[in-house]
Design a protein around this nucleic acid. Structure first.
Lengths: 251, 251
DNA sequence: CTTTGTATGATTGTCAACAATATTCTTGAC
DNA sequence: GTCAAGAATATTGTTGACAATCATACAAAG
């Protein structure tokens, strides 16, 4: 049991530059984002430890990381549960994303070396335009927007900005999808992106910033509108989450 | 040893709503911010554990928290050291603070209930004006600005924004002080604050936002200017920090 | 029928010991 | 004197066990 647990208890092909705890955090956050756990569901240390064939120590550190990332909520002497955001909290996060996306896109528009990555950007936006026309490809459109945002993060020089934006995007992933569920919204979205490319090409930071800001506010409003009309997915207020406890246990 | 370690190993008067780990994180970050540890200094788990009279388990969780807060840097299989920021990194953080402070002050200016806290705000700004005139009270001026920023955080409704801003402010605390070291800069600073109060009183979100943004950029430029002319405090590039290791061990 | 107290199990919080790795020190050759 | 290899030490990574706390179920009293 004790021979080289770091390489054995997880996928061997993953790089060892990341610690065991960080690898677990990555895989756990994937599970949460893919909907394997649902909001409000409790997460038990021993369960996770068994699944990863690790003791509870590293699991606890891992949960601290996920808490700081906003994906789970830790209550002292009660444990962890997948973060369940109220409509107000979703709005809060989008409100923060707006000016930060504005900053990012301004920096990109004012990047002296933007010629290096502009072709790649145009390619993705073109791909996006095709998907936007199709009426039934909401998932693929969302995936492409995610890819686009990821690439923009790669090209931006401010590493901390990149990390904060990635964290906020993760926290609102499921709600961003909501905002792009109608073809009309996707049309609006693609127009924003096209104008963004223009602004970046011209080096117009002001325009790029305001477009980015507006784009986030539009997703915010669309998401909130849907959430308010379908309160089932965000208003389950049973205080103790008993059913979900049982689900977690029988798994 | 085992009788109620949670209340015994730390100050008894602290509230128990916070876990032991969070209490330690608070006290450790205080130490870092007060300069008890200097940038680049290594932090050993066992040393901290001994000082707080706990085992290394909680200390490790605590260090994970501080890492996410940017106060320490964790390297796998090497340990923790107090984060040492390059000039570029300091600039990065200020660049993020600018639009977020802008958002905060816009939200404050557009708060329908701002009448409730405006008098208190005016009082602090008045206090600041007095300190700005005095030529030798840099420390007290900095402290007052910190109090002001803290209060603004209390009044803003977006909890996440408040937390992110607080974290970024902590990371740049020692550099913000640098930016306010000259009386001229303090004069510039107080003028910004006075215009801010006006804008908030009028409910002028646009102006409040742009003033806040400019205020951060001014501190950024002042801090960077000083850092570039006094590179001693940020360019100690000895890779292993040997001397500081020794200091830490003999303590 | 509701409520209160109690017992029981489940879960988190902490610890001390061990394993694995990194660092420092010593020794020796050149 | 400088460098390299190996030993010794220091430090981090992980574990299993125990203590403290929480939640639930159940019984008894009102």
């Amino acid at each position: 049991m004790t021979f080289s647990p770091r390489t054995l208890s997880l996928k061997d092909n993953e790089p060892l530059t990341r610690s065991l705890v960080e690898q677990m955090a990555l895989r756990l956050s994937d599970r949460i984002l893919e909907g394997h756990y649902h909001p409000g569901q409790r997460i038990f240390e021993q369960t996770i430890a068994d699944e990863f064939q690790v003791s509870r120590g590293p699991v606890r550190e891992c949960l601290r990381l996920l808490e700081k990332d906003g994906l789970i909520t830790l209550v002292a002497r009660h444990g962890a549960q997948v973060t369940k955001l109220s409509i107000e909290e979703v709005k809060e996060i989008f409100d923060i994303r707006a000016p930060l996306n504005g900053l990012r896109d301004r920096m990109l528009a004012e990047d002296p070396q933007r010629e290096l990555w502009l072709p790649e950007l145009k390619k993705i936006v073109a791909e996006l335009s095709l998907l936007a026309c199709s009426t039934q490809s909401a998932d693929r459109y969302v995936a492409c927007v995610a890819k686009l945002n990821h690439q923009l993060g790669v090209w931006v020089s401010n590493q901390r900005l990149k990390n904060i934006l990635a964290s906020l995007a993760r926290q609102t992933r499921r709600y961003s999808q909501l905002g792009l569920s109608t073809p009309a919204r996707r049309q609006q979205s693609i127009q924003h992106w096209q104008k963004m490319v223009e602004a970046i090409e011209k080096g117009d930071g002001d325009t790029a910033q305001s477009i980015a800001c507006q784009r986030v506010y539009d997703s915010r409003d669309a998401a909130i509108h849907i959430l308010q009309n379908q309160p089932a997915s965000a208003s389950n207020d049973s205080p103790t989450e008993i059913k979900q406890d049982l689900e977690a246990r029988e798994a």
